[in-house]
């Protein structure tokens, strides 16, 4: 440990920045993935299960191959399988996408725990991170600005999706299908196929989010690895009004606010620590109430989305 400075109260903002970067990535990936899925008119509430399975499979493959990146790839593939299954079964008349999602959450979690038992003990290689703190001599700043490659990929992905939804044919196709199945059919699109692929893409990103948890931060596989990040991130998409860049900001906010509790304690403020830990939820709820309005209710919501109909 080189050059540990006494940073005192500066530790709080630093922890929030560092925490925002470290903790936000799983929220970012799941919410971007769900954003694609929901824009196509489906909701996959089961991404929590996909995330946990991604965490397990990514870790297991990384242990066996010695490569964290192959682990990430495996997690994405596993996520695609879950997404394809969800996307496929939901095309049948009468099948409720929300309900299937909840059952898939159970199934994904169960399969991950089932096959993950032998991987609780072994140690897998970690994903690399990039140092953006080279300009500072302070070890804590360097540590806070250790940015994982997936975070940067996530940022670019958010930008790409924002542009893609607005300006590409694929983006337009997804939006049309999401807004009206009938209109999409009328112009010769196949809504089922678009939704199938959108759900698969969402699953892939959720799988990667899981791999981030197990291969980078906190960086180990165990059955308590997710504390509901997958479910929360799905909800954050609604908060973000189905806009990819909003997903990015919402994830940062959530991660940063989550770091507040430990950071305040580290400078000696520990009264009512449970209440500080609730900061991300209180903050998000407050913003949600402030930015909602009964009249323009969910104007940006995809028209076919069951949860906002």
């Amino acid at each position: 440990m080189s050059d540990v400075a006494d940073i005192g109260l500066w530790g709080v903002p630093l922890a929030i920045i560092g925490g925002a970067i470290r903790v936000s990535t799983p929220f970012l990936f799941v919410s971007l993935g769900e954003c694609i899925t929901e824009r196509s008119g489906r909701i996959n509430l089961g991404l929590e299960g996909t995330l946990i399975f991604g965490a397990m499979s990514g870790y297991a493959v990384a242990v066996n191959t010695g490569s964290a990146w192959i682990g990430v790839l495996a997690a994405a593939l596993a996520g695609i399988c879950f997404g394809l299954f969800h996307g496929w079964v939901c095309k049948f008349k009468g099948v409720n996408d929300i309900a299937i999602g909840i059952a898939m959450m159970l199934l994904g979690t169960g399969l991950a725990y089932f096959f993950g038992k032998p991987y609780i003990q072994p140690v897998a290689p970690d994903l690399p991170s990039i140092s953006f703190g080279w300009w500072s001599d302070i070890e804590q700043v360097q540590a806070a600005l250790q940015v994982n490659a997936l975070f940067i990929i996530g940022l670019f992905l958010a930008l790409l999706l924002a542009w893609g939804f607005k300006s590409t044919k694929v983006g337009l196709t997804i939006r049309v299908v999401g807004d009206s199945t009938d209109a999409a059919r009328a112009i010769g699109l196949n809504p089922d196929r678009v939704r199938l692929l959108s759900t698969a893409a969402g699953g892939a990103l959720a799988g990667i989010a899981g791999a981030y948890l197990s291969l980078y931060y906190p960086g180990s596989w165990n059955e308590g690895i997710s504390s509901g990040q997958g479910l929360m991130a799905v909800a954050l998409v609604i908060f973000a009004r189905w806009k990819p860049m909003n997903c990015f900001w919402a994830s940062l906010l959530f991660g940063g606010a989550g770091a507040l509790g430990p950071a305040l304690q580290s400078v000696g403020i520990s009264q009512g620590y449970y209440l500080f830990f609730a900061a991300p939820y209180v903050l998000t709820l407050g913003l949600l109430i402030a930015t909602s309005s009964p009249n323009k209710a969910m104007e940006s919501a995809p028209g076919e989305l069951s949860i906002t109909k």
Binding site: Y281, L288, S292
Partner: peptide
């Protein structure tokens, strides 16, 4: 307020558990 009930109820569940523990 037109607040989506799914996300509001989930956020409020976490808040309730924090209050209970506190």
């Amino acid at each position: 307020r037109g607040v989506n009930e799914t996300i509001a109820s989930l956020l409020m569940a976490y808040i309730a558990i924090a209050l209970m523990n506190h």
